[in-house]
Design a protein around this nucleic acid. Structure first.
Ligand SMILES: [Mn+2]
Ligand SMILES: [Mn+2]
Ligand SMILES: [Zn+2]
Ligand SMILES: [Zn+2]
Lengths: 151, 151
DNA sequence: AGTCTAAATGAAAACGACTTTCATTTTCAA
DNA sequence: TTGAAAATGAAAGTCGTTTTCATTTAGACT
């Protein structure tokens, strides 16, 4: 990692080492706050902005990507060999990944048809995950209190 | 419109009338600010929050939907009979729509496979539109100054 | 090992789109 | 006409993100 960053003109520091390690040992889609909290447990002197800057850096060097599902919180997603889409649970905020190779093929054709030069694709399904659907079977309307915040 | 809103328990006002009219005579994806500016030209006393609240209302009664492409600005999209996806130009911020019926079918199957109860689908391609690709052919790196804000 | 410069850090402040509050006005059913 | 509920506009508040700035540190080069 140190070498990889060096080739891109960046330096290694203890804070950066810890932030990178912490990010890469997770598999899920983490927000700045979540990673900040995790990192603080190992070194409580690390600043929020350092975590933020390093997540940006991880993206800049091509090892992650920002994901925005419209809830106002930016999450950081590991790049996968095969492109994937997201199932986002509106209730528990869980993000589940799924393969989108077939869909990307269709989208690439669509873009081409419209002389649009694609840089990235976003495929997302919002709804309720298996557990959240189950948990609320008993409810009158099928959903929990938490989900009732509808207006 | 007045009648439609009345059945949903909302009142009509001159401001609301103007905001609704202004929104529906546009076909594109407008932000609060954009509609606010447009509406102000007809009635400069209308407040920003009134425009905001009425865009929310239009969504609530099912005539529009919020669209978030990750640039931090919420846009308001007219509901179409057939579901559509978006081509978002990173350069000029234009949103172009395209049919996604075939893709939705695939996604519905995917959700079903994972016991996920879908509420909505988001299909988006980010890249450069025809004009923005053309405009920069001559540039050394293929893109304009504006697009160079890369770090 | 010592020096130097660019990069990195942490705390705090700034930013900016969105949302809420509150006093006042307006709609519309009775 | 009247009164309750809804709507409005200005201002303030919220909150995640981003920048600023003084200080420290990494690492290249003597
Ligand atoms: Mn992902
Ligand atoms: Mn649209
Ligand atoms: Zn869930
Ligand atoms: Zn464009």
């Amino acid at each position: 990692m140190r070498e990889f960053l060096k080739t891109k003109g960046f330096k290694m520091t203890p804070q950066r080492e810890l932030i990178f390690r912490s990010f890469f040992e997770l598999t899920d889609h983490v927000s700045v706050d979540e990673l900040y909290i995790k990192v603080r447990k190992k070194d409580s002197s690390i600043g929020y902005s350092t975590v933020w800057r390093n997540l940006k850096l991880i993206c800049k060097v091509g090892l992650a990507e920002e994901v925005n599902v419209g809830d106002g919180i930016t999450r950081y997603d590991h790049i996968t060999k095969v492109p994937h889409g997201h199932l986002f649970c509106i209730n528990c905020k869980k993000l589940i990944e799924f393969n989108v190779e077939q869909i990307i093929a269709i989208l690439a054709q669509t873009a081409s048809d419209k002389n649009f030069a694609p840089e990235s694709f976003k495929i997302e399904i919002q709804g309720y995950c298996e557990e959240c659907s189950k948990d609320n079977k008993s409810d009158s309307n099928g959903f929990s209190q938490k989900q009732q915040k509808l207006n």
